[in-house]
Write a protein that binds this DNA or RNA. Structure first.
Length: 468
RNA sequence: UCCCCGGUAGCUCAGUCGGUAGAGCAAGCGGCUGUUAACCGCUGGGUCGCUGGUUCGAGUCCGGCCCGGGGAGCCA
């Protein structure tokens, strides 16, 4: 065995052998030359936050022709012995015995990713190259670990992951505007006798859309498997232009049977704490970077969340707190109105300074499927608000009583036949159940300190943006 | 969709009272150095977002449009 492939991560962790040459492949971050006869090439393969320092001696056959011409972004293969680094900055480095350039950067002068801080706005315009930066690579690793931690939490607690459909025939009432899915020829639409578009001729024989929520479908599996969740993409065709909205985003939606709103809130709190705890253990390098460059005090903030109790507050209590506040709000506060962003921010950022669960909202501002409370004017809904990001979770106990559900649908003018299968769930062995939706990118924004969800997803889709 | 801010070199930005284009970084060349997003010197690099107008003269003032960002609403 003359050479072995290892990752930069394994080398820096001291896991690579020290008695035989190893080969590392990656992309150049920086190159510094010493006329004493060596060059330092920082090589990154994405496996860890820190790059590998490759020490290239001038005795390499291609030193003058190639090594001295390496610029940021060049792909290469470096072979050599791993040795303890005599200088500060890294525990180990490679004494290169061979460097093979695999891919040059043509025109280094205009290569969009330079070894300097770029603005996140600029990086969005080169979305195909931005994973080569520290910040996006770190976010990508955090995203992976966060997803894994969420799956692990559910698995350890007896939940089953259910892949609810991406294409749906129902429009999950009130969750937002829909993207149509159709194979009809737009230039030559089939028409009914009345002149309307004849969706009976469409691929599925009816109107279909991209899902805005897996909730209705997951309820069906909940009422058989008891503890289930979805984790998949979700689509909203809203013309939303904010740092908190994407047209395509990922959502985690657990649903638990034989459970009420309090159980739901407990699950939300345990899930968040568990996932954050895993991140703190497994992504220290990346979190340290976010702490230093993106949000000072980030790690302490996350540790604080893991170690503290979420504050629970009734909607009515939240209104009272806001009414007492000396803060000037643009929108007046009174019982019955939905909380505005400024109100949510005040509650979570100034009043309690950590995540807060607001529960039992007025029924008129919430969806038809949320369970009516005995007071006749509120429903068992909850929102988890997080500092800096606002609503991170929205959930509720579901209305399991068919007569009450029907009454609510009539109230809202919703066609019961359209929800026939959803009503069936209340006709056959109905039980109290509850669930919530956790926005994955909003959670990412919260744990990285990145202020915009567009930087928390590999290729963000927003109005007018689907180029990459 | 509404409100606000912005668009000048590959990137980040400065550009005064309207007088004809600047810096740092990057790139190229040279110097120095077991260096750490090194340091020193030199060089090249511009449709000042587009368009119309005011003016002797517009990066600068005015209108329209395009693009980006922030905030609001919708919501996760």
């Amino acid at each position: 065995m003359d050479k072995i492939d290892f990752s930069v991560r394994s080398v820096l962790a001291g896991e690579a052998p020290k008695d035989i040459p190893v080969t590392i492949k990656g992309w150049v971050r920086t190159r510094r030359d010493s006329k004493a006869g060596i060059s330092f090439v920082h090589l990154s393969d994405g496996s860890s936050f820190h790059p590998l320092q490759v020490v290239a001696p001038s005795t390499l056959s291609n030193y003058a022709d190639e090594v001295l011409k390496l610029t940021a972004g060049c792909a290469l293969e470096a072979e050599g012995m791993i040795v303890p680094s005599p200088a500060k900055g890294q525990p180990f480095e490679m004494q290169a015995s061979a460097i093979r350039v695999i891919g040059w950067v043509e025109d280094p002068d205009s290569y969009p990713i330079q070894p300097k801080p770029h603005s996140l706005e600029y990086l969005r315009e080169v979305a195909h190259l931005r994973p080569r930066t520290n910040v996006i690579a770190a976010a990508t690793r955090v995203r992976h670990t966060l997803a894994k931690a969420i799956h692990s939490f559910f698995d350890a607690n007896g939940f089953f992951w259910v892949n609810t459909p991406i294409i749906t025939g129902s429009d999950a009432e009130g969750a937002g505007a829909l993207f149509r899915v159709s194979t009809l020829d737009l230039a030559n639409l089939p028409r009914t006798e009345e002149g309307a578009v004849d969706f009976g001729k469409d691929f599925f024989g009816r109107e279909t859309f991209l899902t805005v929520s897996g909730q209705l479908n997951i309820e069906a599996y909940c009422l058989a498997l008891t503890k289930v969740y979805t984790f998949g993409p979700t689509f909203r065709a809203e013309n939303s232009n904010t740092s908190r909205h994407l047209a395509e985003f990922w959502m985690i939606e657990p649903e638990i049977a034989f459970a009420d709103l309090s159980d739901d809130a407990t699950l939300a709190e345990r899930l968040l704490k568990s996932a954050l705890g895993t991140l703190l253990k497994e992504r220290q390098d990346d979190l340290a970077f976010f702490d230093e460059r993106i949000e000072k005090g980030l790690v302490a903030k996350l540790e604080g969340i893991v170690g503290s109790e979420f504050v629970r507050m009734d909607y009515g209590e939240a209104i009272a707190v806001l009414e007492r506040a000396t803060e000037k709000f643009e929108f007046p506060v009174k019982w019955g109105v939905d909380l505005q962003s400024e109100h949510e921010r005040y509650l979570t950022e100034k009043h309690v300074k950590k995540p807060v669960v607001v529960m039992n909202y007025p029924k008129d501002i919430k969806a038809f499927y949320m369970r009516s409370n005995d007071d006749g004017r509120t429903v068992a809904a909850m929102d988890v608000l997080a500092p800096g990001i606002g609503e991170i979770i929205g959930g509720s106990q579901r209305e399991e009583r068919l007569d009450v559900l029907d009454a609510r649908m009539v109230e809202r003018g919703i066609d019961r036949e359209h929800y026939a299968w959803y009503r069936d769930l209340r006709r056959y062995g109905t039980v109290p159940h509850a669930g919530f939706g956790l926005g994955f990118e909003r959670t990412m924004a919260y744990v990285t300190g990145l202020a915009n969800v567009r930087d928390a997803i590999p290729f963000p889709r927003t109005p007018g943006h689907a180029k990459y």
